[in-house]
Each structure stands twice: as structure tokens, then as C-alpha cells.
């Protein structure tokens, strides 16, 4: 910054994503959006509201309920020289397209010996917390992060909601963007000239010396709240927003752990075989001798998401649990 006060706009996460799509459509005529109800309905989370009027049905394409085929068509269109943004309503339905994502999008470059890259962007909502029960509430981004050949982005902030899309579109390979649906209404400010952001690095959101808390997506805000509470208790937590789950930016969290000597991972996915397990393993491999206490994890309970509010909240990672866990970790070995 050059010291001049930046002009800012009040906005929401939803509007930031919409603005990112609009900006990309204006910048590059190869870009188009397709998915279920993205046009006439305005998007199931109202993200694409107004875009049909602005860009017309050629570029804002309502698709039938055919996840596998419109994702596959996105792959084909990308191969054919376009820059499609495919919207899947939520990650829960992406399983109907999992074959195309894993077996086609992620493999073509390799299977063809480097001949055919797939510059495709797939956006989808993820996460629980809205009492939508077991078929609409899961966080499966960690699963997708298992797959070599794709990139997995999890924008949590307005900056990233606004800025990751263009960078993803410039990437020559398939990029999946997971938007936690509880964030769409989040309000805040963005510089009027906000634009593309780097997608290769995690971000230290808050500096601290006592513990490193690693998280991503909507859990970031629970972690930041916990860090505020912990500060009042004399514990200074360093908070890392991973931003990208594949490839993981190991350097950022490993160097933080080397400083704080403790690590807690907060992940809305299930614990077993999760991205949090992966990060924990990498900390063992890369910073074992730095640790003052075992790495711990707070994940979603291993149940299909229940409908009842109290049960759902009990299943998700919560600020209070983060606070008590950190207190215990810091208390055990200081």
C-alpha cells in the first residue's frame, strides 16, 4: 500500500463471488457459466442472480439435472478452447459427477502424455450448519484434495471469494472451488479495485507464539473467535487459513509450528482419512522435533449430519471446543 486511503465497498461473500464471475465474463469471452438453475432461477444460492440478463443464455447456461454430463461437457468445452465455469449446486451432488472429475478431468493431461490439459473451473457450495440434514450438509472438499491432477480451493474471506476465480481460470488445469454456504451472507468491505489473488499460499491471519491453529473455509471464523477469547486468557494463537487444500502449502504451517511448537487442526470434514489427518502426518514428518505436545484435531463428528439443530451444532467444530482444547494443549506443556 502506498499510504493513500483505499476506496472500499460494502459487500457480501455472495456478491464477491458474483462480481468475480462477472469480471471474468467481461475480461475473457471464452468464459461462460453453466449449471443447474444458474440462469433463470438466479443460482440456488442467488450467486448468479442478474447474470443471465447481463450476459444472455449463451453464456449463462441452465443445464438439466445431469451432473455427470454437464461436468463432462465442461471438460470437453475446456478441451475445445473455452474457459467454462461449471457450477454444481452443492458438493453433495458432485458425487454424481465424481467419475468425470476424477477419471477424466484429473487424468487427461497425464493419460495423454501431456497433450491435453483441461482448463476447467468447477465451483460448488459445501458445508453444514443450516439444518439441511444428511444429504445436503457434508464437507467433502478434503476428499477431492486426495486427487492428483486437480487443485482444490476453499475461499473463506471476501478477498478470496472475489479473487480466486480469475486465478483459477488462468490455471491450465482443473480447479475446484468450494464455497461454504454459511458464508454467502457474510458482510464486509473490499477495495473497489479488488481482483485476482494468489492461490498457492496459505495465509497467516493472526500472529501468535503459543499455538498454531490450522483451518480453512467457514471454520476460520470460529477459530478467529476462539483466538480472541484465548487472548483474553493470555494465550496467543497463530491462525492459518490454508486457502488451498491441494496443493497444500506445507512451508507456511510448518514454519509456524516451528515457532509455536504446538498445532491444532480444525476441519469441518469427518476425522477419519481427512485432510486434517494429512496435515497432521505432514507435521510429524516435517516438524516432529519442534513439537511440545501431540498434534490435535477438531473435526466433525463421525455421523451423517443430523437435522435437529442442537445435534447438528454438536456435530460441527465449535468455538468453545477450540478454546478448551487449546487451553488444555497449552496448559499440559508450557
Amino acid at each position: 500500500m502506498n499510504g493513500e486511503p483505499q476506496e472500499v465497498l460494502k459487500t457480501t461473500y455472495r456478491e464477491a463471488v458474483r462480481e468475480a464471475i462477472r469480471d471474468a465474463m467481461r475480461r475473457d469471452e471464452r468464459v461462460f457459466l453453466m449449471g443447474e438453475d444458474v440462469g433463470r432461477y438466479g443460482g440456488c444460492f442467488a450467486v448468479s442472480k442478474g447474470l443471465l440478463e447481463e450476459f444472455g443464455p449463451e453464456r449463462i447456461r441452465d443445464t438439466p439435472l445431469s451432473e455427470s454430463t454437464f461436468v463432462g461437457a465442461g471438460i470437453g468445452a475446456a478441451l475445445g478452447g473455452m474457459r467454462p465455469i461449471v457450477e454444481i449446486m452443492t458438493v453433495n451432488f458432485s458425487l454424481l459427477a465424481a467419475d468425470q472429475i476424477l477419471n477424466t478431468a484429473a487424468t487427461y493431461l497425464h493419460m495423454s502424455g501431456g497433450l491435453f490439459n483441461v482448463p476447467l473451473v468447477i465451483r460448488m457450495a459445501t458445508g453444514g450448519g443450516k439444518q439441511l440434514a444428511a444429504q445436503h450438509s457434508h464437507s467433502l472438499e478434503g476428499w477431492f484434495a486426495h486427487i492428483p491432477g486437480i487443485k482444490v480451493l476453499t475461499p473463506a474471506t471476501l478477498e478470496d471469494a472475489r479473487g480466486m476465480l480469475w486465478t483459477a481460470l488462468e490455471d491450465p488445469d482443473p480447479v475446484l472451488i468450494f464455497e461454504n454456504s454459511t458464508l454467502y451472507n457474510m458482510e464486509g468491505e473490499l477495495p473497489v479495485d479488488a481482483g485476482a489473488v494468489d492461490i498457492n499460499h496459505a495465509r497467516v491471519c493472526r500472529q501468535g507464539n503459543d499455538i498454531t491453529i490450522i483451518t480453512y473455509g467457514a471454520s476460520l471464523f470460529k477459530v478467529l473467535d476462539a483466538a480472541d477469547i484465548l487472548e483474553k486468557n493470555g494465550i496467543c494463537a497463530e491462525v492459518i487459513d490454508l486457502r488451498t487444500l491441494r496443493p497444500l502449502d506445507d512451508a507456511t504451517y510448518l514454519s509456524s509450528v516451528a515457532k509455536t511448537h504446538r498445532a491444532l487442526i480444525v476441519d469441518e470434514g469427518w476425522r477419519s482419512g481427512s485432510i486434517s489427518a494429512e496435515i497432521s502426518a505432514r507435521i510429524m514428518e516435517g516438524a516432529f522435533y519442534e513439537l511440545d505436545c501431540p498434534v490435535e484435531r477438531i473435526c466433525s463428528a463421525e455421523v451423517p449430519m443430523p437435522y435437529a439443530k442442537h445435534l447438528e451444532q454438536a456435530a460441527l467444530p465449535q468455538t468453545e471446543t477450540i478454546v478448551t482444547t487449546v487451553k488444555r494443549m497449552v496448559g499440559t506443556n508450557g
Partner: peptide, 10 residues
Amino acid sequence: LPVAVGLALA
């Protein structure tokens, strides 16, 4: 088949 649909769309 879906890939072909996409190539044709492009």
C-alpha cells in the same frame, strides 16, 4: 459422451 458434448459446445 459428455466430453464429446462439451467439445461440440465449444
